[in-house]
Every structure is written in structure tokens, then in C-alpha cells.
């Protein structure tokens, strides 16, 4: 390792923080569209994404103070662009509708989410442990301790958390025209 690397370590945290505050990083987060959706609207939103030829990348879940944030990632083959759908599930009763009847590939992703967080997907035909041992008795392994749990405000400090209206034409036209800014068609 060079000397320059060593020096950078010694930069105090305060100075670093000041730097980032001066110029808020205009980072591309990897999401071309990102929505909060209510559990009741989820199926309808996913149906619209299905009609717009999206495929399901994965289903991620984050344990937060407000409950479980289940994040669905969608992308498209012909016109790439990532859409994120965020659904908040209640902690006491973590139930959200299953989307396996629209995307059969969601089956395993939902089982994994059930495994790691205990989120129940209503209507799932086969909600069994997939990666964990079926005899495992303990709490779901990715649950955070009460003291470590962060709120939505800590992670998304300046984000509008209001759910999108999936019935609106705006939502449909946004997802239909969604595209990755860096993508260029080679032809």
C-alpha cells in the first residue's frame, strides 16, 4: 500500500463529513423509478409492470422501526430501467399479498423473505422455509435487535414517503417510459 493511502485514513471524520455536506453527492442510486406502495395496491402495481413487460429481479426486505420494508426490483429486457416498489408491512402482523400468480419467479423470493424476516405472503401456495433448515426453531435470522433498528427517516432523510397512486395515468406512463439514462441501443 502506498503512503497516500495511509494519509487518507488519518483524515478526521469531521472533515470528511464537512466535505460531503458541502456538495451533496448527485449519485445515481441504481433506481430509475422508485415508489412507495400500500400493501393493498401492490398486486395492481405489479400487474401494470407485468403488462409493461418488466421482469422481477428480486425481492429484498429491510427491518425498520416502522415495520418491514419489502422492496421489489423490476427491470426490462428491451428498454432497460429499474423500478423499485417499496411496501411497508406491519411488525405485529407482517402480511402482504403474494405476487406469485403474476410472476411465478416470485415464489422463491417470497419464501426467502419469509425465511429471513418472517413476512407472510398471503395467497402463497407453498410458503415453506427455502434456505434455512425446516427444523430451525429460533427467530428469523435477519431481524434486528430493538436497539439497532433504524427508522425510515434515518435511512431516507429527504424522501417523500407518501405511497403512489397506482390507478393514476401518471404511474402507468412513468413506468412505460422508464429507461436507464446510460443505455444506448447499439443498432
Amino acid at each position: 500500500m502506498s503512503d497516500a493511502d495511509e494519509k487518507s485514513v488519518e483524515v478526521p471524520d469531521k472533515e470528511k463529513a464537512a466535505k460531503t455536506e458541502e456538495s451533496p453527492p448527485p449519485i445515481y442510486t441504481g433506481y430509475d423509478l422508485d415508489y412507495f406502495v400500500t400493501p393493498d395496491d401492490l398486486v395492481e402495481a405489479v400487474e401494470k409492470l407485468d403488462q409493461a413487460d418488466f421482469f422481477l429481479e428480486d425481492i429484498s426486505c429491510v427491518d425498520l422501526q416502522e415495520g418491514f420494508q419489502v422492496v421489489y426490483h423490476f427491470d426490462r429486457f428491451d428498454q432497460p430501467g429499474r423500478v423499485g416498489l417499496r411496501v411497508m408491512a406491519d411488525r405485529q402482523k407482517p402480511e402482504i399479498p403474494s405476487i406469485h400468480h403474476i410472476f411465478p419467479g416470485a415464489d422463491w423470493h417470497e419464501r426467502e423473505c419469509f425465511d429471513f424476516f418472517g413476512v407472510i405472503f398471503k395467497g402463497h401456495p407453498n410458503l415453506l422455509p427455502i434456505l434455512l433448515d425446516p427444523d430451525y426453531q429460533g427467530p428469523p435470522p435477519l431481524l434486528k435487535a430493538e436497539s439497532e433498528r433504524k427508522g425510515l427517516q434515518d435511512i431516507y432523510p429527504d424522501r417523500d414517503l407518501t405511497p403512489v397512486d397506482v390507478k393514476s395515468d401518471k404511474f402507468v406512463s412513468e413506468i412505460t417510459n422508464c429507461s436507464n439514462p446510460k443505455y444506448r441501443n447499439p443498432l
Binding site: D5, V9, Y156
Partner: peptide, 27 residues
Amino acid sequence: HPKAPKRAKPPAGDVYFAVEGARGKIG
């Protein structure tokens, strides 16, 4: 990068990053 952090401490937020692996899309 000469100023690359050794002890990474990213700001709050979330990102998605995908690459093409030999078996498909790694995200």
C-alpha cells in the same frame, strides 16, 4: 484512487448495483 477510503463509511441511503456475471445478472 489515492484518496480511496480504507474504512468505508457510506452515507445513509440505499443503492442497487448490477453486473453481468457468467450466470447472469448479479445484483
